[in-house]
Design a protein around this nucleic acid. Structure first.
Lengths: 319, 319
DNA sequence: TGCTCTATGCTCACAGCGAGCATAAACTGG
DNA sequence: CCAGTTTATGCTCGCTGTGAGCATAGAGCA
């Protein structure tokens, strides 16, 4: 690591990655766009950049993270340069599945352990817990990397795993998406880990890989994005970027649940968005297939002037 | 802006910026280090990179933001390339003022309107409010830029200013540091604005500039960092990265107050950190100059296993 | 009509937090 | 030694937010 003072000029390649999220039919979907582009992105130029590639009109856009780990892109070896990806997160409204040739992927097919709407997914107890505990036993109990930092819980592989996945009596923190993915990666439980290590494809008896792998480090980027959105839900009105102008409270709740990967208490959810002033009734009834018809609501902009952090506040421990 | 599809290879220069924060003698201080370096930073290599330049041992480090606006660096014109800075935020413990030639600067000399520990600073009512209202009157009431996004409050210059600075009966949100700086920049109230526009230095009768200017967009980066730290305070135990191993609750409170720029209710602060399980008593008394001696406490690591988001939770509206 | 399904209203209990009163333990100058 | 100052620490009151559940409303269907 003596390279720390190496000048970077000309040795770094920069590209852009956009993680576009939508919620369709009750499931979060992702569209990843990556490519070279001008460095400026956050403004209108970035919206156009994506629009050109996907034919979509982006709503909310924010910078997500800049990924630059060594070995994250095979082009590095080819070009002899570090490849840096500046990733952006964008939210778009529910829309046609196949928009202009773009292919949406179900987020929870890529990160199955993140969906707890149907209770704790069996992949956790069946595959993840036993594999992780085998891993931390093998890894020993020395704290990983930087003990200097108080933040990254504990430090020992075991403690990190327990906190990230809420094992034992610890609660599930829906925002720790990246921590979980990185643990699974370190423990070799996701396909990318073996691939990046240059292992051949595993055969039948091998450990089942969790979720579907993605190209490069796209799944890590997706995990970062999902964690970010989940966090943002509780203090910014980002959900409304994913919904049509008017919606029923149930629809709103379904979108929140889809992103959070949690089931929420219905009455309390209504009370929350109502009393927080996030929505206002339109007086119009939705025509529903079954059951009592619901009223349509819309986002109440004034809440931005009233509350410093308007959001839907997920429960602390999802179980 | 047809450049959106321009390939970036070779046209982008990347460097690193580190914003190092400490709290000394009750005031937050900043040390900015910028320079070319290897792209990988987050890990040990980055700590060494800073250690080489400043002789400091970093504690907590996280990636802050990647700055890449056009025109942010004069080298762009020279090199004909966009300059991208990947900025990191680091926290270090209270230490000698002059560490190995590094010069600390008082954060609130750079962003004076952010310090409300002595009540609302007079610069707000005296200079900022009148200048901002002149600005929004001149700017008209058309929503700025992207109305597409529901998030960025309101959109009209006036509403943005009112929300960011908590004008009228709106509350002060200590985290909106960047929003405030950018508004002042847009309104031409900080020195960098005129400089970047190529104006000559203002003479006597000109509008007084707010706070001390910094090179390039360092002050914007600092504002980003301060906002991030303030946010982090409430859900991560980052304060303890700035304090010695053992500390009195008053010392802890002073550091939090320094960062938040707010005065906190003493008894409630004690109750908070105590009942949240953030600290544990050591049984040792501190030898104080005056008043009843205080007990020394230390960070309680177990809290990381008990709470999903351990932090000190600042009040929503500081007034 | 009774059943199912979804929407909506309301209550209870408890935790968290803002504000303030009260006391404790050191030092100071008379 | 006492009164006054200063800082630390303990405790209470009241409001709000939130988790959990009971109950009712309104629509379609057998």
């Amino acid at each position: 690591m003596e390279a720390a003072t190496t000048p970077a000029l000309g040795e770094v390649t920069v590209d852009l990655a956009a993680v576009i999220l939508a919620v369709t039919e009750g499931s979060p979907r992702v569209l990843t766009v990556q490519g070279e582009a001008d460095a400026e992105w956050a403004g209108e130029a970035g919206r156009r950049w994506v629009a050109e590639r996907t034919g979509m009109q982006l709503g909310y856009v924010e910078q997500l993270y800049t990924f630059g780990d060594a070995g994250r892109d095979p082009r590095e070896r080819a070009a002899g340069a570090r490849v840096l990806s500046v990733a952006y997160l964008a939210l778009v409204r529910e829309q046609a599945f196949e928009a202009a040739g773009a292919t949406w992927r179900d987020v929870y097919e890529l990160l199955p352990w993140e969906d707890r709407r149907g209770g704790e997914p069996e992949v956790l107890a069946q595959a993840i817990e036993p594999a992780l505990s085998r891993w931390w036993l093998a890894a020993g109990d020395e704290p990983t990397a930087s003990t200097t930092t108080l933040d990254t819980a504990g430090g020992s592989p075991r403690e990190r795993a327990e906190v990230a996945f809420g094992l034992g009596d610890l609660g599930w923190d829906s925002q720790r998406v990246l921590e979980r993915y990185e643990l699974l990666y370190e423990a070799g439980l996701v396909g990318e880990a073996g691939r990046d290590a240059g292992e051949p494809e595993r055969g039948g008896h091998a450990q089942a890989r969790l979720g579907k792998a993605m190209a490069l480090d796209h799944r890590r980027i997706l995990a970062t994005a999902l964690g970010r959105v989940r966090g943002k839900l509780s203090y910014r009105p980002v959900v409304f970027e994913l919904l049509p102008e008017q919606f029923t409270l149930s629809a709103l709740q379904r979108v929140v649940e889809a992103l959070a990967g949690l089931r929420l208490h219905k009455q309390n959810f209504r009370r929350l968005v109502d009393r927080a002033g996030l929505v206002e009734p339109t007086g119009v009834q939705a025509h529903t297939a079954r059951g009592r018809p619901a009223e349509l609501f819309c986002f109440r902009r004034e809440v931005l002037r009233e509350r410093p952090a308007p959001g839907v506040g997920l429960p602390r421990s999802g179980r």
